[in-house]
Design a protein around this nucleic acid. Sequence first.
DNA 1: CTGTAATGTGAATAAGCGTTCACATAAAGG
DNA 2: CCTTTATGTGAACGCTTATTCACATTACAG
Lengths: 213, 213
Amino acid sequence: MPPKKNTHIRQEEIVQAALQVIGDKGVHGLTITEIAGRAGMSDANIYRHFKGKQEILEALGEFIGERVMGKAASIAAGKECALAKLAAIFRGHTALIAANPGLPRFMFSEEIHLGNRELAAAMATRMAGYIETLSGLIAAGVSAGELQPDLSPRETAIALLGMIQLTALRWSITQGAFNLEAETARLWENFVRLIRRQQPVAHLTETLAMDSV
Amino acid sequence: MPPKKNTHIRQEEIVQAALQVIGDKGVHGLTITEIAGRAGMSDANIYRHFKGKQEILEALGEFIGERVMGKAASIAAGKECALAKLAAIFRGHTALIAANPGLPRFMFSEEIHLGNRELAAAMATRMAGYIETLSGLIAAGVSAGELQPDLSPRETAIALLGMIQLTALRWSITQGAFNLEAETARLWENFVRLIRRQQPVAHLTETLAMDSV
DNA sequence: CTGTAATGTGAATAAGCGTTCACATAAAGG
DNA sequence: CCTTTATGTGAACGCTTATTCACATTACAG
């Protein structure tokens, strides 16, 4: 009775449905019946387009990796200053989480990390790449004199990512009890104060004061 | 055949066994059979001491809350300087995680946050209290002139906790692929550099230089 | 010493889940 | 138009898991 669609289209629909289900019921509530219902098809039809649930999770991992990593990489390749790039990545990341609450749940889900070695390794690689991208930007900011000279790029990148991650999880846990945008804005503002190169006191350093105007 | 024990003792044994199971197999692998096996009793006997699995999770939440929060609160009540207290809490927290890998898994598990509203609320309250304790210490450090004057206590506390949390999850995910102590030591060292009040350049501020010696 | 309540257990029950199968039906090529 | 292939479905299967039940056995109060 229902119209038929190409497998490529169905695969995309299934992955999207799965991400939505995770946003609503968590990875624990990600059942074949739930995915099928959300995607508007029967349970059995899922298996026409994916070998099994594991394959859906792998496809979801690729999809998320492309979204998060891809966006960050393209911003990092731009030609603004390092701090502006970091801000853009931060904003983009939190906006993506706000639009897809399933994203952080998937990234740190046990079902994935303990249930599928290959997928766990792939996600770990993606996260390492993300940290690497952030580290590179921070190192560039230090070299350019925008950021404090004595900070460690990698550890600072982890602090930034941890801030995002903890906030995403708290938001997820409390079912959106606070305003994610406002909270992340406060966090970013404070973080920038911590890492930005301190302006020397004005009356002691006339020459630098000229630059900053 | 086996000797009988008081319900209080059994409850403690069951909670301990559950925490160990989570460390090995995650919250997803926390089954009644697994707990019973680890605690050396039959599945049915679990129900003599707990009404059901949910009640075990609630007891585990209380146990963990006491450990983490209790330790932090007692350190915060001490009489060292704020930075020393923060360092002690940081070390204590990471040491506790190293000894009980199930701890961060439980704290951020979906099964808990989506499966039991009351428990989720209780854990959220505990986490808020923890952030509050850290914020208070940071604010005290700012007042005492140990930390940078322009940092927001709450947001800085979240950055610190996020750093711990992300590292714990990465460690958990990679099955202990890196040295947790060494990694957290690097992170703390960098974090201290970020938040500690910058020493003014010596030859410009003789009076302050006297204090710092 | 005796009976009563608490503690312990193997087996059975019921529900949820991923997956498969036999059968229908739309789409596409000749 | 017709045949073949891809797509779609309800029903059934096998497995895991939490929970309950009838039945022992230990601890303990009197």
